[in-house]
Each structure stands twice: as C-alpha cells, then as structure tokens.
C-alpha cells in the first residue's frame, strides 16, 4: 500500500513532479507534496467546500479527487488567484472590502468557488449566486457579507 507512482501536476502554471501513493487525495498532494497550504481541509467528505479549487476552470472538491486523477489537468488554487504580490484578484479585493471573512479558513474555498463561477458567468445574479454559495460552509460570517462581496466582484468582472 505504500507503493508510489509518479504524477505530474500543473498548478497555477507551475509543473510539480511528485511521487505519491495512488490513494493520495488531490488536496493532500497539493498541501503536502506541492507545498500549497492555502487549500484547506474542513471535512474530507465533500460537504464543507473549504478545499474547493479549479480543475480545468471548474470548481472541484480537492478532498474528493485523487491526485492521480488530476494528471493532465490545469489546476488553480488560491495561491494562483492574485495576479502578483501587489494586486489582488477582484474577488479577493471584494471579500476584503465587504468583510467577507473572519477566521479565513473557509475563505480560499469560497474565493475559488466564486472566481470559478464569475469567470464562467460574470453576469451571475444574486439569486443564482446564493445558490452557488450554498455549496460551501462558513461558520463565522453568516454569509451575507460573502454574498455582498461576490456580487461586488461580479459587478466589477462583468463591467
């Protein structure tokens, strides 16, 4: 069971060649083998969405996917969201300005969920956005500021 296989992952435009057990989840591979600890694990059974990342542009629970299944895909994590060290992605900026985070643990998952949604559909309306946001859990904010931030980002990204 400790036999490893070589896996090549493309994350935020970087190539990671790692040797891992086939049973290793994508979330663990990103965190432990690629050193990208911004992807957080809140439940490991696919409910909370803290580990949401983008695989080929689609939001995915990194805890429900094996790393070997991600070979050949393009992965984006929270570390790849901002264009550089000086600027934030519109979704990140909106979360800051609208107080859309408190402890910050669920935040990377929400950011990737919303970024994925808005990059695919910038004109998402509030009702649909609430539906989208209901796929992840936050225990600090009560969600309203997350919704406000997401709509502010939508306005900026569609404008």
């Amino acid at each position: 069971m400790s036999q490893t296989v070589p896996v090549r992952l493309y994350v935020n435009g970087d190539r990671h060649d790692i040797d891992i057990e086939p049973r290793r989840t994508l979330a663990d591979a990103l965190r432990d083998d690629c050193g990208l600890t911004g992807t957080h694990l809140g439940c490991e059974h696919g409910v909370c969405g803290a580990c949401t990342i983008l695989v080929d542009g689609k939001p995915v629970r990194a805890c429900l996917m094996f790393a070997v299944q991600a070979e050949g895909t393009s992965i984006r994590t929270v570390e790849g969201l901002a264009p550089d060290d000086q600027q934030l992605h519109p979704v990140q900026r909106a979360f800051w300005e609208k107080h859309g985070l408190q402890c910050g643990f669920c935040t990377p998952g929400f950011l990737m969920l919303v970024a994925g949604q808005l990059e695919e559909k910038p004109e998402t309306d509030e009702e649909e956005m609430r539906d989208v946001l209901s796929s992840n859990l936050c225990r600090c904010t009560g969600y309203q500021n997350i919704l406000k931030a997401s709509m502010a980002a939508a306005e900026e990204m569609s404008g």
Binding site: R31, D32, L36, T37, G38, T39, H40, L41, T77, V78, E79, L81, A82, L88, Q92, F95, W96, E97, H99, L101, G104, F105, T107, P108, L111
Partner: peptide
Amino acid sequence: ALRLEDPVLLRGAGRYAADTY
C-alpha cells in the same frame, strides 16, 4: 477600518495548525 488580517488570509498564506511542517 479594513482588517489587517485579511491580505495574508486572502492569498492563502495563513498558517493554520495543519500548515506547520
């Protein structure tokens, strides 16, 4: 006032319990 904590957290650069190796 905007929170001091947020820029680090928004970039996924926080260090939670599992992030120490």
